[in-house]
C-alpha cells in the first residue's frame, strides 16, 4: 500500500488575536494545493488565550486547526514558537509547511527548517505542484511543490524543489496569493495543544515593545496614485494627493520617494514595500525598476506618466503619457471634474 501523503500545513500569524492577512492568503492557497494532492489543509496558531479568531480559518478552507496555547507564546519570541512547532511537525509529518514571509515568519521558518533538516525557500511568489527529476541522483519525485521566487535582486525567477524528506518548507510573500471569498457555513476541527516548552527556549525576554498602527494599508486600495523621485520634493507631493483626492484614491510611492523623506514607508510599493493589485495604478515620475514593478505589475490597469519615453515603467503600462507630471496631473484633475 502506498504511504499516505502528509497534509498541507499553514502557520497562522496573529498579533493581539488578529490574524495576519498573509495567513489567510496561505490558507486559500493551501486549500488549492491540498485539493490537488487529495490531502487536508491544517493550520497551526500559537499564542495565549486565543479566542474568536479560529472560525475564519475554517471559512477560508482549513480542515483542522491546531490551537497551541501557553504563557511563553505571548508575546511572540522565536525560540518557544520554534520548539512548539517542531514537536508538532515531528508528530504529524505534514508534506508541506507554509509560512508568511513577514518579519516574524522570516526569522521563525529558518530556525524550524534547520532543526527539521528541511529545505526552505524564502519569499515565494508562486507555488505549484509538478513532478521533478533530480538529474544528479537520477531520482523521480512525484507531485512536488514547485517553489517559485525572484532572486538576484529580482532579475531572475527561480523554481526550487525540496528533495529531502518532508516537510517541504516555504515562506510566501505577503499579498501575492489571493484570498478567495469565505464560506461562512464551512466547519472544521479544533485540536487544542498544550506544548512543552523547555527552559532553554525562554532565555530571550521582551523588555519593551512599541508599535504603531500602519498609517495606510494599500493592499486594500482600489485606486492608487503613486509618486516617485520625479515628483521632485516633499511639497510637490501635494499634487499627488490632489489627484488622489479627486479620484477617491490612495497614495503610493517608490522607494526613492520614501528614502528622500517625502512620504512614510507604509506607502512604499514594491519588493520591500507592499504588493498591490488595485483596479487602477497611476505611476507618476516613477522609472519602473524591477523592485518597484514586482509590487504593482498585476494591477488591472496601469497608467504611467514620465518625461522619459524610454523609462521601463512603460513596459508594464497599459496607458503611457510621455510628459511632465506637473502639467499632466492638473489636466487629469480638470478632465475628471468636468466629466462627473
Amino acid at each position: 500500500m502506498a504511504e499516505k501523503r502528509g497534509n498541507v500545513w499553514v502557520f497562522i500569524e496573529q498579533e493581539a488575536g488578529k490574524i495576519a492577512d498573509v495567513s489567510l492568503e496561505l490558507i486559500c492557497k493551501g486549500r488549492e494545493i491540498a485539493d490537488r494532492l487529495d490531502v487536508k489543509t491544517e493550520a497551526v496558531i500559537l499564542g495565549n488565550n486565543l479566542e474568536g479568531s479560529i472560525e475564519t480559518l475554517f471559512h477560508h478552507g482549513a480542515d483542522v486547526v491546531y490551537q497551541v496555547e501557553d504563557k511563553a507564546l505571548e508575546p511572540f519570541t522565536v525560540l518557544p514558537y520554534a520548539e512548539a512547532i517542531v514537536s508538532l511537525l515531528k508528530e504529524h509529518k505534514p508534506n508541506i509547511f507554509m509560512v508568511g514571509a513577514t518579519l516574524k515568519g522570516r526569522e521563525l521558518a529558518p530556525r524550524i527548517a534547520s532543526t527539521m533538516l528541511a529545505g526552505l525557500t524564502a519569499d515565494c511568489t508562486d507555488l505549484q505542484i509538478d513532478n521533478f527529476v533530480d538529474k544528479l541522483t537520477k531520482t523521480d519525485h512525484k507531485d512536488k511543490l514547485m517553489q517559485i521566487r525572484p532572486a538576484f535582486g529580482g532579475n531572475i525567477i527561480a523554481t526550487i524543489v525540496t528533495t529531502w524528506e518532508d516537510p517541504q518548507m516555504v515562506t510566501v510573500r505577503e499579498g501575492v496569493m489571493k484570498i478567495t471569498s469565505p464560506n461562512k457555513s464551512r466547519k472544521g476541527k479544533v485540536v487544542k495543544v498544550k506544548p512543552e516548552i523547555s527552559a532553554s527556549s525562554k532565555i530571550v525576554k521582551v523588555i519593551e515593545r512599541i508599535t504603531q498602527e500602519k498609517s495606510i494599508d494599500l493592499k486594500k486600495s482600489q485606486i492608487i496614485i503613486a509618486g516617485g523621485y520625479g515628483v521632485g520634493s516633499k511639497e510637490n507631493f501635494k499634487i499627488i494627493y490632489d489627484l488622489a483626492n479627486t479620484l477617491n484614491a490612495d497614495v503610493g510611492a517608490s522607494r526613492a520617494a520614501v528614502d528622500a523623506g517625502w512620504i512614510n514607508h507604509d506607502h512604499q510599493v514594491g519588493q520591500t514595500g507592499v504588493t498591490v493589485r488595485p483596479k487602477l495604478y497611476i505611476a507618476c515620475g516613477i522609472s519602473g525598476s524591477v523592485q518597484h514593478r514586482a509590487g504593482m505589475d498585476e494591477s488591472s490597469k496601469i497608467i504611467a506618466i514620465n518625461t522619459d519615453p524610454d523609462a521601463p515603467i512603460f513596459s508594464v503600462a497599459h496607458y503611457g503619457i510621455v510628459g511632465d507630471l506637473n502639467e499632466v496631473i492638473p489636466k487629469m484633475i480638470k478632465a475628471f471634474r468636468a466629466k462627473v
Binding site: 513596459s315 497599459h318 496607458y319 502639467e327 478632465a335
Partner: peptide, 27 residues
C-alpha cells in the same frame, strides 16, 4: 535539500501600451 529546477531571466515583456498625448484633449 533544495535543488534549483529552473531559472528564468526576467525580461521586460512589452505590453500593448496605448500612447496618450499629454494634451488636454488626449487626457
Amino acid at each position: 535539500p533544495t535543488k534549483v529546477k529552473k531559472i528564468q531571466s526576467v525580461v521586460l515583456e512589452a505590453t500593448e501600451v496605448v500612447n496618450v498625448e499629454p494634451t488636454g484633449s488626449g487626457i
